Simulated assay, not measured.
Amino acid sequence: MANQYKRILLKLSGEALLGEQGHGIDADILTQYADEVKAVQEEGVEVSVVIGGGNIFRGVKGATEGMDRVQGDYMGMLATMINSMAFQDALERKGVHTRLMSAIRMEEIAEPYIRRRAIRHLEKGRVVIFGAGTGNPYFTTDTAASLRAIEIEADVILKGTRVNGIYDSDPEKNSNAVKFDTITGDEILKRRLNVMDLTAFTLCRDNETPIIVFNMNEKGNLKKVVCSEESVGTTVVWDE
């Protein structure tokens, strides 16, 4: 079956890498995610990735109480680099060629982010991991994912979570929560559903970048989303 998307941006939360642990990175989850990305890449899909830093940053959050916001945000950006390096290693061990690009210059471990170079890497079949957010304080990794997706002209943002899509309430707290197969951007705003932060969401809406929210922890789901084998997750549409 032909792939629905040629170039994707996969957004993963740092918390997802915790697995069953209370802190750090779960090696089994990292390996599972690497397998998922490899399976999609082998189908000829160009894959880029943005990972949050919550699993690392949460461990030092107490130390940041009362800290300058800008300082704390830069610490968060460095946390994303730790996760990005770990994921790069997991992919490389699977034989997947990767490039790690950082919005903050740190040449010893990552290339500086240059849009044209990122696109060239994707065209050559390399998985590109974008680290350090946007390189600016006050912006989340959701915003970084939206910005990078638009810059590299990705066909879709795939937001991998631990639930099966977008619900009318938190499914982890409400067993009667109802899942949407598709939902408009206006409906998300009207219902105040927590899909992405408002800056990230507005970027996607203004550029009509599709978003699919799905369960990344269910094996094979990423390939199902990309290859359209079946309806997986929730698709955010911008047309009424």
Rank of each mutant, 00 (worst) to 15 (best):
E111R: 09
T31S: 15
M67E: 12
V156T: 11
T184D: 05
L9P: 06
I150D: 10
N176C: 11
D68T: 02
N221W: 08
S175D: 15
E111A: 14
D28L: 09
V70H: 04
A144G: 06
T64M: 11
A16G: 12
D155S: 04
R58H: 11
G95A: 01
V49G: 03
G185T: 07
K179C: 11
E123M: 14
E42N: 10
L222P: 08
A145M: 04
A103V: 08
A90N: 08
K190I: 03
P112L: 05
W238M: 02
G53P: 11
K173R: 13
S169P: 04
K179A: 12
L17R: 00
E218S: 11
A144P: 03
V50P: 06
R58K: 08
G233Q: 05
N55R: 01
I129K: 00
G66W: 00
I129E: 09
T235A: 12
G76N: 01
E42G: 09
T234S: 03
L198T: 15
F139H: 01
E218W: 02
R126W: 13
T143A: 05
Y5I: 07
V96G: 09
G53L: 06
E218H: 08
V47I: 09
C204F: 02
T141C: 03
I114N: 11
R120C: 09
F180P: 13
D26K: 00
D181K: 07
E107P: 08
E230I: 08
T209F: 02
M77C: 08
A2G: 14
T64R: 00
D206R: 09
K11W: 02
K223D: 14
R115E: 15
E46W: 02
R93G: 15
D186M: 08
G66V: 05
